[in-house]
């Protein structure tokens, strides 16, 4: 009958009045992400073998790294000197961490990137290696 829809709708919303609320108290209570969540990367300089694979796979080209000769003359190969990720353009696609053979670059579950200036979005080696909380366990 014409008109019943109104009352059904009103009844429904009235019922919802006492229903459990689903709002998440986000800044007060942290939002826990599942382990696989792709947050901001963590970088461990010691593990890096400067193979450049991450740079090559990155679809947005936001990784910049420079290697240098190993200070220990006994050993061959290079060690990492600088490692920057530009978070203005990083799309957190997970490809760099997927490709890294030594898990030098891994994802964390941290996702809070907001800052007051773009300049802070240029994260360097130091920042990335200090970003060592909530590191993802499973990376491949």
């Amino acid at each position: 009958m014409w008109g019943t829809g109104f009352f059904k709708g009103l009844g429904f919303t009235l019922k919802m009045l006492t229903e459990k609320k689903v709002t998440h108290k986000y800044p007060d209570e942290p939002y826990i992400m599942p382990d696989r969540f792709r947050g901001i990367q963590h970088f461990e300089p010691d593990k890096c073998i400067v193979c450049n694979q991450c740079v090559r796979v990155c679809p947005t080209g936001c990784i910049n790294l420079v290697g240098k000769a190993n200070p220990d003359p006994e050993k061959k190969g290079k060690v990492i000197d600088t490692y920057d990720i530009n978070f203005e353009i990083c799309i957190l696609c997970d490809l760099c961490t997927e490709v890294c053979p030594t898990e030098a670059i891994v994802m964390t579950n941290n996702f809070e990137l907001a800052t007051y200036s773009r300049d802070y979005l240029m994260k360097d080696l130091k920042w990335l290696s200090e970003n060592n909380k909530n590191v993802r366990e499973e990376n491949h």
């Binding site: 992400m33 599942p34 696989r36 969540f37 792709r38 799309i91 957190l92 696609c93 997970d94 490809l95 997927e98 994802m107 499973e138």
Partner: peptide, 27 residues
């Protein structure tokens, strides 16, 4: 979104499928 987040690690942009399969197995 939570379920997809759990399986793929993303809430909106999943980047989950790969040529030949998928990135992760279902947890």
């Amino acid at each position: 979104v939570d379920m997809l987040n759990e399986i793929s690690g993303g809430r909106l942009t999943y980047n989950y499928m790969r040529v030949g399969g998928v990135k992760w197995d279902a947890p």
